[in-house]
Design a protein around this nucleic acid. Sequence first.
DNA 1: GAGTGGTCTAGACCACAAA
DNA 2: TTGTGGTCTAGACCACTCG
Lengths: 248, 248
Amino acid sequence: MVARYELIADELREEILSGAYPVGSQLPSEAELAGRFRAARGTVRQAVAVLVAEGLVGSRQGARRIVLGAARSQSFAELHSFAQWARAGGYRFGGQVIEQRRRRASAAESARLGGGEVLEVLRVRTLEDEPVLVERTVYAGWVASVVERLPADCESVTEALYDTIGLVFAYGEHLIDAVSAGVHDARLLGVRRGSPLLRQRRTTTTHEGRPVETSDDRYRAGSVAFSIRNSIGANPLVRQAIDLRSRG
Amino acid sequence: MVARYELIADELREEILSGAYPVGSQLPSEAELAGRFRAARGTVRQAVAVLVAEGLVGSRQGARRIVLGAARSQSFAELHSFAQWARAGGYRFGGQVIEQRRRRASAAESARLGGGEVLEVLRVRTLEDEPVLVERTVYAGWVASVVERLPADCESVTEALYDTIGLVFAYGEHLIDAVSAGVHDARLLGVRRGSPLLRQRRTTTTHEGRPVETSDDRYRAGSVAFSIRNSIGANPLVRQAIDLRSRG
DNA sequence: GAGTGGTCTAGACCACAAA
DNA sequence: TTGTGGTCTAGACCACTCG
């Protein structure tokens, strides 16, 4: 079942991406759109809200909505899963488990994952046959045995978890910064020790808010960037200071 | 004029942050909230949508909403303006113009800012008396003369532009990656050449979609991180591959 | 002042989750 | 089966922008 407002949003999005409404131009008024789609005003408002959330359209009281940009944004799955992202972008990609072991959760991991035993996995991912990402993922105890049984060159753990036990990743929290490559990272990525890496630390949970994994992902500089659109009133991205006294 | 749904959202947010609804617990149903606040269901839905967008609350059809996290998120202004962010966080901060000159826009800048003459400004920002950020900002010609007249140690260009000509930054686009420090950056930040820097490139526009500035900001590693909460259905953050053949 | 988006209401029906 | 959130409607009033 696809909602009416989604269909309207899709149609408007296509028109924006195709250039029917160029960047900087005005969108039709809500009344006009309601007439065109034979829908209530509330429904077209919901449709336009989707485009505003995507950063495609800007909105302010009293003035016509304007087109801000014309780039497609990606789904949660594509941010969460390297494989799904790479596939959607049409890249050649791969991955390999380097090391894997069960151990007791540290204090910090217990707070995030719920304690007990955890499974730590070290993977290297390639894009266009070059290693670009070192992934250190810690899985909660309740998924450990499933992850352990996956092949070492499993393309997508996310998809495998869904296929085997119906697990869906639904919410994520991400912390992004830069670090320099240690000896180990440098060797795995084929860069010099001390090279800049883009680090993404994340924790992911299910629909019910149950934590599944926490990960420390390090990208070789120059391979991947993160992109965000934001506006007054909708600000997903947040800057954080790192404690300047006790640097890690 | 503060909207009713904002007041309701504020009240619920306070309850979440204070621990009245701990992480993992369920929120009251829409019907209960409507009764408690004597508002229509649509209004409480709007209120809860705010919390969902902030990443505090998770929502799915058929099940009670759950509390995902209990961290305050920041405003657009705080992401956009170093000064406003640092002040909101209670940090000691400062800034200094190192170099400033007018020149013709490059091709790339013309595409983003609209051509003609631009003003390029190089600033260093400090946090807790340590240099943490090198900012290379290019202002569109129509704001250049205003920016030129600001004092070299102006704390907040954003605020100054608002105070002098009523200019409001409304929309931003951000690209985040890691680079290594060049000789110049290294000297300005007091780090070794080749050290990792967190780079944020951004373009900002007014309410009308008129571009104001584009900037290349580089943070010393270990000083600042970016943080994001996302979920299925609401995904502001996007990962981008950088062309692997022609790296820059 | 006319037009536009923002807020709010009241009620209906549907899809989905959980017991 | 019951309760919950998701969708949609229709209409009202308000705040704001812009000519």
